[in-house]
Design a protein around this nucleic acid. Sequence first.
DNA 1: GAGTACTTACTCGGATAGACGCTGTCCGAGTTACACAGG
DNA 2: CCTGTGTAACTCGGACAGCGTCTATCCGAGTAAGTACTC
Lengths: 162, 162
Amino acid sequence: MILKSQVEWALHCCTILAGLPNGRYLSTKALAEFHGVPKEYLSKALQSLSQAKLVDSTLGPSGGYRLSRPAAEISFLDVVEAVEGKERTFVCNNIRTNNPCRPKSYCEAGPCAIARIMWEADEAWRASLRSVTLAALIQTLEKEIPVTLWQSSSEWVLNRAG
Amino acid sequence: MILKSQVEWALHCCTILAGLPNGRYLSTKALAEFHGVPKEYLSKALQSLSQAKLVDSTLGPSGGYRLSRPAAEISFLDVVEAVEGKERTFVCNNIRTNNPCRPKSYCEAGPCAIARIMWEADEAWRASLRSVTLAALIQTLEKEIPVTLWQSSSEWVLNRAG
DNA sequence: GAGTACTTACTCGGATAGACGCTGTCCGAGTTACACAGG
DNA sequence: CCTGTGTAACTCGGACAGCGTCTATCCGAGTAAGTACTC
């Protein structure tokens, strides 16, 4: 059970978009070039973000994507769920109903105890992702990344932002 | 990103094995019949449990599996990791190194900030699974399952235990 | 009655095949900004 | 200078193929318990 690489890409792209000046857009091409990933496949991830209403898109030249809300209001969970979907990581097929001793009249009350425990862990994972916003990520990045690299990167991005 | 159905099967099988009297074995065939799943494929899940040293196996007639430790010392995480592996659910491909502005001399210090956050959530998931033992599961099951069904099931199992 | 060979039932591992999702590429339709030509 | 047309750049969506993983099945090798058979 491993998350798609699109999740990684989407998170990195959101980071870049969060650093964009208000109202500016950045194209898929620029994002793909910056991260060294295939443009056409990256566009799938961005489409997922767009469908989830996390980013706005514009057509035409100097078009592209921008965050639809402030970075402080977008959590990691938002991005992960946009790409991976909101379904739980554990699905219960209710195999307990195959128990040969089970009377046909018997009707289960509530979900399987095993499923409940698995879903609880799933919720813990989501809660952890929900607690971190893009703004918080950028704050730690600003501390970790050398100033020169940070500046040259935002300059690179700005030159391509429409 | 969805867990294999083998995880569900393994958890249910461990529950049955945990209810077995000390030293008794239960065969793959009986476990498969009880849960209504294909015997040969279920055996893969049980082999994973065996490789992870969660269960002991015996060959020959009246052979099968039993827990290798008390149910109170086996957590959900043990079972899940036995089947799914211990790898983290998020893999960092370090695409930050593709940044065109990055000087070649520059060497990253420590893992990517995005990966760290994803791994923290992964750890929260695992911690939640680690906190629940098979013994605790059985305790809740005893409360929820009707006494008659509980008894007839353990009788069914005992008749097939070697 | 004691010892030995045989049968049976099971685990374990490898080989195999289909279904499905992920990865990655390609192309066409639609949209917008900009440049350019004509009045 | 203004208007209209054309072009370029981009998003979006669908179609498609390759690949690995998950699901599922089958078979053979090895092992242990029980049974029959021999001395």
